[in-house]
Design a protein around this nucleic acid. Structure first.
Lengths: 189, 189
DNA sequence: TGTACATCAGTGAACGCGCGTTCACTGATGTAC
DNA sequence: TGTACATCAGTGAACGCGCGTTCACTGATGTAC
């Protein structure tokens, strides 16, 4: 059942995309190879023709998730409105396409080095992006870097905790609103 | 090999304590029952005499971890110095005895209801504790609740991200310092 | 207080299931002539 | 351009291992007399 090179390349991308969604939704240990391949429209046996191991896919999926997210944040979206969107109930309830920083926050350190590296690079890229926006708003460089780091932590913590307490809607939204407000206070954004 | 009721009760507590440490360090899926029992000085077969399932232990261990942490935060420790300790490299590197909010942040929503409930109650207790401290510092009630929620999110996000990027010491400590500074800025604490 | 016996906490082998990975096989692709 | 054949992406059965859970058994506890 050989397929054309183009189709094989499509399959490769489909596997990464499926993995990026499923890993974010269920964690690295919460999905098996067969489920990922099934989501990509293939059977599990074909997997090892595309990747060396599940871990190798995890690293690739992590990289892709960050890239996809950062690409979606275009210059047209201001920091302020990005924060509104990020620190919201809709992001809280959107696991599969949500931010990988949140999805993997507390389990990434148990993954292999290759996955950790992709994650750390993603966090770094996110922080830089925010620092750039702050600079554009007139904040000086060293201050902007420090503040960006603080904002990233608040964003991730807010969504992670809001998800973890989702069945207690009152607490969950108090966390989101409280965090969003605290950032607004600081920068008037 | 029956043991006295007192020893059996000690064993019960030892299992919970071992689980609370190991689960925080390796996650719920990263430790098996045999390892927990071994850490508690028993063999795996005795486990089901103490708990109905691994999940039931997870709930109990989660509850214990929160209790232990909150008990350690006595009235003698000010909010400011508690934040210094929480948002620090030493807490970042202390997994087994670290804050359960951070340890389970992104995997708690995949656990069973019983575990989620313990977690959410813990988050709620933490938030209330911080709100009380803010009130004691003169912040008005409704404001104190909202700000407390924002602070908890920042705390959890900072330590979680600092851990996730621990191999990049510069980024990791920038996140810790940036977060701590942003809270200090807001409340002058 | 001492003795006989029922209880039951703990032990370690075994069960069953899920999952990552391997492999012999299939049949469409794409290349050599 | 057409034909023959080597290549190789995909299939599904099978392997091996780890883990949660069960169970027959052990022997100290603690109770009944």
């Amino acid at each position: 059942v050989k397929v054309s090179k183009e189709r094989a390349a499509e399959h490769h991308r489909a596997i990464i995309k499926a993995a990026a969604r499923l890993f974010r939704e269920h964690g690295f240990g919460g999905v098996n190879v067969a489920e990922i391949m099934n989501e990509a429209g293939l059977t599990h046996g074909a997997f090892y023709g595309h990747f060396d191991s599940k871990v190798a896919l995890a690293a690739e999926a992590c990289r892709y998730a960050f890239e996809d997210r950062l690409d979606a944040w275009t210059d047209k979206v201001s920091l302020s409105s990005y924060l509104d969107e990020y620190i919201s109930a809709s992001h809280r309830d959107k696991y599969a396409d949500g931010c990988p920083m949140v999805a993997f926050a507390s389990e990434i350190h148990r993954q292999e080095k290759a996955v950790q590296k992709q994650y750390a690079q993603g966090v770094s890229a996110y922080t830089q992006r925010i620092a750039e926006r702050l600079s554009a708003e007139g904040v000086r460089k060293p201050q902007a870097n420090s503040r960006a780091a603080g904002i990233v932590a608040a964003m991730v913590g807010a969504v992670a905790l809001a998800r973890s307490t989702a069945w207690d809607k009152e607490l969950s939204s108090k966390i989101l609103l409280g965090t969003r407000a605290s950032i607004a206070t600081r920068f008037g954004s």
